[in-house]
């Protein structure tokens, strides 16, 4: 079997792996291009978390505020968002929604960019929009397709977790003692001022235990990225761990999936532990200076 690709390596001694001693072999093995992609995919996961968490919080805040609105249609919209998204299994949501979202965007762009188009968009199983409406454009380089896939994933995660966050924030807003709001009103605060200056600052304390739960679940949900076609750590662990025969690689090995998944386990455990420590600190900070901290903080936790 001819190997067609050159072997760029980090260490100079890696050109003939079959001749190496165990430790050197391992150092070469762990620095193949494929492994570097694996390490980079940890960055992908962390980036997903870093972007999704604030976006989901915005969705949650918006949903909760809508659900409390005095205007009936807005209130209904907020409540429908919360209950529908919370009620659909994540997997079903991720399988169906992403394709629908993608096609929805392309359909919108199609309406704007190609009004003269006469062919039907749905032809049997095919979904056809004009070339200018494709997202990303077919001519765009592969990295743009990957970024787009990633952003769709972020949006999907944000919508799903935003619904849960909305419910938590909704509850937290209701948990702020009624007397606080009445006092504000008595001092002549407008409803807007009461909301932003009295309600919102105090509701975080009640929301945080629920939100920290949600953060933990979000961390553990990141392997769903794999379902969305993003090459995440689970994809690479499975690919690298699969047994390799000497015909197709310089580093043949048996079924090593166990070790790769063990590494993922350690990563997730370490990351959730770190999160716990940080969230604990944030909680302490939010509680300090609050008259009711000693009792309600505990009760909420």
């Amino acid at each position: 079997m001819t190997r067609t690709t050159p072997r760029p390596t980090i260490f100079s001694y890696c050109t003939e792996p079959d001749t190496l001693a165990r430790l050197e072999w391992l150092s070469c093995f762990l620095t193949t291009g494929k492994h570097l992609s694996f390490y980079a995919s940890f960055g992908t996961v962390l980036m997903l978390l870093a972007i999704t968490a604030p976006v989901a919080l915005v969705f949650g805040f918006g949903g909760a505020t809508a659900a409390r609105a005095s205007l009936w249609p807005v209130r209904m919209l907020g409540k429908i968002y919360i209950s529908v998204v919370r009620g659909v299994p994540d997997i079903a949501f991720f399988m169906f929604f992403v394709i629908a979202l993608d096609q929805g965007f392309e359909w919108l762009r199609h309406q704007v960019k190609c009004p003269e188009w006469t062919d039907p968009i749905r032809q049997g199983n095919d979904f056809i929009v004009c070339a200018a409406a494709k997202l990303p454009l077919n001519t765009d380089p592969q990295w743009m397709h990957e970024v787009y896939g990633f952003l769709i994933a972020v949006l999907t995660f944000a919508i799903v977790f935003g619904a849960f966050a909305a419910n938590i924030i909704y509850g937290a807003m209701n948990a702020v003692p009624r007397g606080q709001l009445e006092t504000a009103e008595a001092y002549g605060f407008s409803p807007r001022q009461t909301f932003w200056r009295i309600l919102v600052p105090q509701m975080w304390r009640y929301a945080l235990p629920g939100l920290s739960n949600l953060w933990m679940i979000l961390i553990k949900s990141t392997p769903l990225l794999f379902l969305l076609g993003v090459e995440d750590i689970v994809f690479w662990a499975r690919e690298l761990g699969a047994s390799k025969t000497a015909r197709f690689t310089d580093y043949p090995h048996g079924d090593w999936r166990m070790w790769y998944f063990l590494a993922l386990l350690v990563f997730y455990l370490a990351f959730t532990k770190l999160s716990e420590v940080v969230l604990e600190r944030v909680m302490r900070r939010l509680n300090s200076g609050q008259a009711v901290a000693a009792t309600s903080g505990k009760a909420a936790a």
Partner: peptide
């Protein structure tokens, strides 16, 4: 002009990812 070819990348010798993570086979 540009054609995107979809493959699985896990079915040697037909298609697989080589040590650099590129589609090969």
């Amino acid at each position: 002009e540009l054609v995107r070819l979809g493959t699985e990348g896990a079915y040697p010798p037909y298609n697989f990812l080589d040590d650099n993570g590129e589609v090969a086979g």
